[in-house]
Nucleic acid binder design. Structure first.
Lengths: 201, 201
DNA sequence: TAGTTGTACGAACGGTCGTGCTAAAATCAC
DNA sequence: GTGATTTTAGCACGACCGTTCGTACAACTA
């Protein structure tokens, strides 16, 4: 039996987070303010506050919500591809596509927030590091699987390759949001394609 | 004949900016606050304000000061190298070194601020875009010169190569500040070396 | 010497921030 | 129905924000 009260609460919680991830992708997690969100969503500031307990908890919840969106648009569709090199390619393509389609209005949420919190300390920093690291780890793990499956030449330097693919995705998002246009995505895709072909067995 | 008053003003102006670039490289240009800077430097808030005219002008001056530091540590030493491929290599090495030595406590100032302001509008955005674009342009121009000098295979795709080198530097800074360690710099340097060797005539 | 200019200060402004308190409204169990 | 529970609103708080103003003092000009 569902409690209509907590259901209502979870609904506004979702609404707040849906708005917060968009704002944070442009203005940063520091740019989030309870008052602004409340005004935008026609809620009371204290209501939003009560829903999350503190500003920091709202930021953490926002990181969590963004992580779910990232997983939905990048990770999950890639896991549908067959393991090995095809899955690596899917990961790259879905990542670039997610950034280019501006799932978050400010480009990749985690590019923004990682740069914002990389040199700080605290729970928000830790959360951002954790999510970012998890994705980098997924790329490397998928590459390692490809090597094991014989899709990559053995001893092809999975760690090195992983770093380079990650760098290209990062730069595509950065350049595109900063200067506009789809050219960075084409350049990144081409570099990824060539680099993977070079490492293929 | 020097005016001791404006000399004094320029001295505190420099002191403020020297502190501001460091703070901004960690907390962002939004994290700058007149009150905080004044407190840190034992100045009055209104004094700092009067020195720059407005918060936005302080941010712009901070971007300018950071640009000068970047030029001093990355661009100028690289221009001392002979044109062509050696200069390209110097540019890469000096860039990575500048980031790794933490000339700014939060890593590369422009990585931070570009991510912070990329999706906004206004004078600060424009200033950050201009400086970032100028460095990317320098890399590409230097590569083009290398191609003209016969150091690179003609038709080797200077634009593509430029994007990739830029991406590696970006990612090295991002990974290192986020997760710590010098490993990202080694990975980036290795990738740059291999990629340039591949494109060499 | 008198007057002007530039730096720096201290106090105060209106505004927004995050955060408490209290009360109302909505939903539950009985 | 009554009473407990949970979400939401309203209001006030202290702190900090960028900004303005008047003023004090040092350094220049005449």
């Amino acid at each position: 039996m569902p409690d209509g009260r907590v259901l209502r609460g979870e609904a506004t919680r979702r609404a707040v987070l849906a708005h917060a991830v968009g704002v944070a992708s442009v203005e940063g997690l520091d740019g989030l303010s309870l008052g602004r969100i409340a005004t935008d969503l026609k809620l009371s500031k204290s209501g939003v506050f009560a829903l999350f307990g503190s500003k920091e908890d709202l930021q953490l919840a926002t990181v969590g919500a963004a992580s779910a969106v990232f997983t939905e648009h990048v990770v999950d569709p890639s896991l549908a591809a067959p393991p090995g090199l095809p899955r690596v390619r899917a990961l790259c393509e879905n990542w670039l596509s997610y950034s280019e389609r501006r799932i978050f209005p400010g480009g990749c949420f985690f590019f923004h927030t990682a740069a914002e919190y990389d040199a700080r300390t605290g729970r928000v920093h830790d959360a951002v590091v954790e999510v970012s690291g998890r994705f980098a780890g997924l790329i490397e793990e998928t590459l390692r699987e490809a090597e094991k499956l014989g899709h990559l030449a053995s001893g092809s330097g999975v760690a090195q390759l992983s770093f380079e693919l990650h760098a290209l995705g990062l730069a595509a998002n950065a350049d595109s949001v900063l200067h506009g246009g789809s050219r960075p995505y084409r350049l990144a895709a081409e570099a990824m394609r060539r680099r993977l072909a070079e490492a293929a067995a």
